[in-house]
Design a protein around this nucleic acid. Structure first.
Length: 375
DNA sequence: CGGTAACCTGGGAT
DNA sequence: AATCCCAGGTTAC
């Protein structure tokens, strides 16, 4: 149907016969020097501090590795590590036997200013919003949501830095998680090195100016494919904004969803889906609903069965988003997040095994299997 | 203006 | 072995 491997495209390396794929070194982004390494590895004796919440407000594995950020890494089985601004932070979930519940702890690896780091963390976690309250509402208007919520509690929407979010989701288009992560890692490595945790390197996200120093060709060599020109193009447009691109992005937080989407899709590489992701995950647009292939399947299955079989066009895209808002209200994006997670192969397997525990025999592993019975 | 064919890339299915 | 298909889409025709 589609797919033809045509002519070498116009813009890039037409005249340069590349001696095959030697991963050239880019912009030697200052190798981590010994002193920084030292300050960051001192934290094997770091102190963990409890956050005042439990698993139903924040479940780490249902929040970090589920596609809203590609910058956080699982550094131990129970621990996730990432960067917020210039703060290198780990979170981990442990059992608290005294109250029969899981507790989330945090640890600052490089922050002199603990209170600044703490407020940055709470802001990033969107802690001003009570997940349980939202879910009570969603469960009330959707019994299927209520079922899923029991097994998947604590799937929270983060409040990320807009530039960081924008670049990540430009990388995500028509792409798979593994390669998206590689690409985001490359972008990250352009920023200031902050330290290692469990052998994993962490960097501050690069500034717009730093990003503008990287050419389309360099992004291509780093494996960005046709998204290379999206990145350089978007960076250029942002830099042209009066007052600066970062300010411009931040100003979108005060606008209504429609205006936010319209503004974002003027950036190259940003269409309706990516715009909705940026709006929801970084611009306080809680009712933005990113409609991708997964959500489309969910919608045609449960929400708009009359559209089953149709292809996902931009128009239907917004129709699905509208249907979500109609059903779930002002925080429809948060509802979508859980429904999306439930569709992920990993979670699907988990839900399946949970049901099998009560059914003793592993039955149908077909992902098409409808909701599992709970006795 | 709405619908389709290209588009980088790599892994898995046919 | 050669193609096709898909992965949290966007763009240009």
């Amino acid at each position: 149907m589609k797919r033809h491997r045509p002519l070498p495209s116009r813009s890039t390396s037409a005249g340069t016969p590349k001696p095959t794929t030697t991963i050239t070194t880019f912009y030697t982004s200052k190798k981590p020097n010994l002193s920084t390494l030292k300050t960051s590895s001192q934290n094997t004796n770091n102190n963990w501090v409890p956050l005042n919440l439990n698993k139903s407000e924040l479940n780490l594995p249902l929040t970090f590795p589920t596609g809203q950020t590609f910058r956080w890494k699982q550094t131990t089985p129970s621990q996730f590590t990432g960067v917020i601004g210039s703060h290198l932070i780990s979170l981990k979930q442990v059992q608290d036997f005294s109250c029969q519940n899981d507790v989330v702890l945090y640890c600052f690896h490089n922050s002199n200013n603990k209170s600044a780091a703490k407020s940055a963390l709470l802001d990033f976690l969107n802690m001003g919003i009570c997940l349980q309250d939202l879910w009570v509402g969603f469960s009330g208007c959707d019994p299927r949501f209520a079922d899923l919520a029991v097994s998947l509690s604590g799937a929270r929407v983060l409040r990320q830095d807009p530039l960081e979010c924008l670049i990540q989701f430009i990388c995500s288009s028509n792409n798979n998680i593994k390669r998206i992560t590689q690409m985001v890692d490359f972008v990250s490595s352009l920023g200031k090195f902050l330290g290692c945790v469990e052998g994993v390197e962490f960097y501050e996200f690069p500034s717009l100016d730093r990003l503008s120093e990287v050419s389309e060709d360099e992004f291509r060599k780093a494996g960005f494919g046709y998204r290379a020109k999206y990145i350089t193009g978007t960076v250029k447009v942002l830099q042209s904004k009066p007052g600066g691109g970062v300010e411009w992005l931040a100003s979108l937080r005060k606008l209504d969803l429609q205006s936010v989407i319209e503004a974002l899709i003027t950036l190259p590489g940003v269409g309706p889906k990516v715009a909705a992701c940026i709006a929801l995950f970084s611009l306080d647009q809680h009712h933005a609903v990113p409609v991708d292939t997964h959500v489309w399947k969910i919608a045609t299955k449960y929400l708009l069965p009359e559209l089953a079989g149709a292809r996902l066009t931009p128009k239907l895209c917004s129709r699905v988003a509208d249907a979500f808002v109609e059903k779930y209200g002002k925080y429809a994006g948060w509802a979508q997040t859980l429904l999306f997670i439930a569709e992920l192969p990993s979670q699907k397997a988990l839900l399946q095994s949970l049901s099998n525990e009560t059914k003793e025999v592993a039955g149908d592993l077909n992902p098409k299997t409808e909701k599992v019975l709970n006795f």
